[in-house]
Design a protein around this nucleic acid. Sequence first.
RNA 1: GGAGGCGUAGCUCAGCUGGAUAGAGCAUUGCCCUUCUAAGGCAACGGUCAUAGGUUCGAAUCCUAUCGCCUUCACCA
Length: 596
Amino acid sequence: MSLQAILSNHVQQAVKAIFNAELSSVEFQATRKEFAGDITIVVFPMLRVVKGNPVQIGEAIGQYLLDNVEEVVGFNVVKGFLNIEINDAFYIGFFNEVKNDDTYGFVDVEEGDNAVMVEYSSPNTNKPLHLGHVRNNLLGYSVAEIIKASGKKVYKTQIINDRGIHICKSMLAWKRFGNDETPESTGLKGDKLVGSYYVKFDQEYKKEIEILMADGKTNEEAKKQAPILVEAQNMLQKWEAGDKEVVALWEMMNQWVYDGFDVTYKNLGVDFDCLYHESKTYLLGKEFVDQGLKTGVFIKKEDGSVWCDLTSDGLDEKIVLRSDGTAVYMTQDIGTAIQRIKDFPDVGGMVYTVGNEQDYHFKVLFLILKKLGFDWAKNLYHLSYGMVDLPSGKMKSREGTVVDADDLLVEMSQTAGEISEDLGKLDGYRDEEKEELYKTIGLGALKYFVLKVDPKKRILFDPKESIDFNGNSAPYIQMAYARIQSILRKANLSEIDLSREIQSTLQLHEKEKALLKQVQLFPEAVQNAAAQYSPALIANYTYDLVKDFSSFYQNLQILGTGNEVEKVFRVQLSKLVSNIIKNAFGLLGINVPERM
RNA sequence: GGAGGCGUAGCUCAGCUGGAUAGAGCAUUGCCCUUCUAAGGCAACGGUCAUAGGUUCGAAUCCUAUCGCCUUCACCA
């Protein structure tokens, strides 16, 4: 039973015994550093059922707790705050319980029927991944891990946007200007190669528009009549008709892109359990549009287009099928969602990691699925996140103002290397070991930089200012971990008996107690993060814990002074903290080094 | 115009379901490496929580209005 639960029961009993009133809940908070005590009970909310002076009520309850609860050794009341002091024995007991639990605070997966599907990444296949995708991938992956830790089964997935006019543009440019270039012949990553043709297409397109406008066409006409665009549209029609040559080219170039993406995913440390291809699912939604028409969820207009009227829900009318009967984005997403539940019947909810520019789209999608009568539709969540902007504004692929994901990863580990060299940290290590470490540190810094920010806020990324390796950053926390590993090595485990129960004769320092209080709250932090789909919560919580530990441990002779029991306790406490760091960083997808 | 989001220290951000004197990092300025890793520690400086009202014992947090920035409201995806 948790401390809060114990106290909560007793406070309710106290209120009943002293004031003859029923208290439905008790409000707790951690006692602020300036005041004596460990945990604080807020008296104000009780005034609703107990009339009187908050200070006197607090005094009465405090006295009752002191008399009746073993763990309570003192109390004081400041205004309406009842500060309770808890004895060391409770914390030492708690510590003995958890000190050897390598997964402390992190619930194991229980197989059940409450699985969650998490979608993330889902890039277009005509451009390489950039920093915006990196944020998406890191968020999605981390949220998946956090949900897992909260006790649910998770399927990671993505929908691959392999259909539509944008692919044809790259294909066409490759045919015209490609000279049979391949990733092998050029040595380029496949996604980079295809991306370069997408840019090439756009350049040609602009040229042709200018020529047409010089001929006296209006801008609008020119945009529609440019030969290269018309040709791309023809190509799309051929693709939809199943033209062999076009489909073969499409398959080849898409494969190049997938191979390129796979490299980036691997470097980012993300993965997927299953994939959905738009080209294979875009027709599925139509079936359900028909069904919805019959049940009156949708309406058909004179021109044949199908709409969903959401005005009674405060939204607009939304198109779900074009007048020519072809599918739109919404149609496809309806189909994909239904298909996923068919494929994985244990899935009871889904999380979509998609940028906040699509907030409206998902609001509508979820509403339509509800109207279609799917009971899982109430468990859909749009994990919406803000854009990553540059000082110059938005990233735009066509204008080349993007921070390329691969380049950034290389830069990060290079920076880690430079800093390490300057500090002379790794003299004497083999080159491969160094490289591995630089990756761990550089990638960690990037991931933490992105994940520590509330998902819904936009991130400003200044390439000129490198990502932090100091302060509230992954390398700081990684270093704390590495130092603890160093302590554990030097502690000479054969001499110090780590498995020994810490005796009750031990006197806890104030800071040690404060640290244990935080440790106690960690599982709750994980649950909150899962409920809110927010890795930022875990990141900031971990930093707070490590910072407290660091400032404490800086002034502490872990192996030097004190008696044997204290020494063992410090080493074990360090070990516990490092376990928590490792597990928390696992939830963020960040590795921890044994030394750095 | 309708809808949604954001606005907290010079900069980047925390601040859980309302709680005590609003917290970190960076930057600036002092100290601290014969003490298991200084990517560190201690301290100073820095705030009208966009603005104005309201709700209440109590508001950065909830409500309303205003201002500023962003997104969205396509037979694009």
